[in-house]
Amino acid sequence: MWGTLPENVGTFQDLDGLMEFITVVVGLWFLAAMAMIIGFSLMFKAKPGVKAQYIAGNTGKQVGVLLGIVAAITMFDFMIDIRNVPLWNTIKMQIPAEGDQVGVLAKQWTWVFTHKTKAGNVTTEMFNDAGEYSDSANGAPKLHVRTGTKTIYSLNSEDVLHSFKINALRVTMDIIPGRTYKGWFEAVKPGTYDLACAEICGRGHGDMAGRLVVHTPDDYDKWVKAKGVTKADSAPKGVVVAHNAAH
């Protein structure tokens, strides 16, 4: 929204448009109301000899002013609602049948991503079974996806509530233990983006970082061939890793 939001690298571009639309609508109301507050304050500052006018807001005309405001607000509400519903339905309800399947397992306080690929399941996580770093970028597990293909994720939690949030794609979905939620997105621009837990989940909530790696289709195939076993991906470093390693 006018440069304040991070670049939208997915297909949910209309979301930014909706946010801008809401901001414009409520911004106009805000400016109108502020103009009235400041204007009236200046115009009607007490002056010697000038009495206040008796306006109780109970005549037909005055009540009409308030009801006019009600009508105007109702209209703008309706305009927001009709833009919201189809967008919401697209994002949350119309999950495509075809696409790359990834499993997202959240646990205190890290992520395990399972990619269903042609070469079988590829799991990326902080530590492998031997306790070694299997995949990390600044200590964060990576979710690998490709452009040109929709990604269908399914969310599970091993312990408490978490939330799967990727700002760059405008994706957020809570993760509830005992349930599996599905969602989807399609990334359009290759790169590495932040992935976060957005529901407080205990002491290490602030360490529960992940990365989304968007590949071009060719790069994705290469990554699948290498099966994502990336011990050399990056060395553990920094406070974050030390924190996670502590337990």
Binding site: A33, A46, K51, I55, G57, V65, V70, I73
Partner: peptide, 16 residues
Amino acid sequence: GVMLFALILSLYGGSI
């Protein structure tokens, strides 16, 4: 909206 505008309109024509 009604409440806030009622509060704001209460200033109109006043001797503030």
